[in-house]
């Protein structure tokens, strides 16, 4: 089932991008085998392989239906996964506003909580230590221009580096 959906999604995306290749400007002197040629060739191969994937899994499914189903189910911690993914997105989107150091400190706290740390002191020391180490290595040692954020965060970061 999964493979069929994956195949269909791949075909859909390939058709979408194939449509985009028709909008490429045609450069004079490169009409034959121009810029659209290679992406189109690759996309056509991808469509072909996706169809093969769908056919293969349809054939397999028919075989499987006759056999008995014995696949031990893995226990998955979906809520923790979605929370971690969500926090990761929020963290990266926050960096330009809160500045690198402040958002990193907050994100590390939340990540270690989500991954099972329950001791407040250990969470704080760990997050603070990692943030300070990042500051020392990147801002002071190799002069990386870490994002400063806006408003008060910008003024704060100006004090540090």
């Amino acid at each position: 089932m999964n493979n069929i959906v994956a195949g269909l999604i791949l075909i859909g995306l390939s058709i979408f991008f194939f449509f985009l290749t028709t909008q490429f400007p045609i450069v004079k002197g490169y009409q034959q085998m121009g810029d659209a040629f290679w992406p189109r060739a690759v996309l056509l191969v991808l469509i072909g392989l996706s169809i093969l994937l769908i056919v293969q899994s349809l054939l397999k499914r028919r075989k499987k239906e006759s056999a008995q189903k014995t696949s031990p189910k893995e226990v998955l911690d979906r809520p923790a996964l979605f929370k971690t993914m969500g926090v990761m997105i929020v963290y990266i989107l926050c960096i330009p506003y809160l500045g690198f150091l402040f958002s990193t400190f907050l994100a590390l706290m939340v990540f270690s909580y989500l991954m099972g740390d329950r001791k407040t002191s250990s969470m704080v020391y760990f997050s603070l230590g990692m943030t300070v180490a990042t500051y020392l290595i990147f801002a002071l040692l190799i002069y990386t221009a870490l994002p400063r954020g806006v408003w008060i965060f910008k003024s704060l970061s100006n004090l540090l580096y």
């Binding site: 990266i92 990193t104 994100a107 990540f111 270690s112 740390d117 760990f126 990692m130 990147f138 190799i142």
Partner: peptide, 22 residues
């Protein structure tokens, strides 16, 4: 424990990809 290793990997990933071109 992984609750130290995991967040550290995520931090390295972010700072690492940022630092190549700022």
């Amino acid at each position: 424990p992984y609750h130290k290793v995991g967040p550290a990997i995520l931090l390295f990933a972010v700072i690492g990809s940022y630092a190549i071109n700022n």
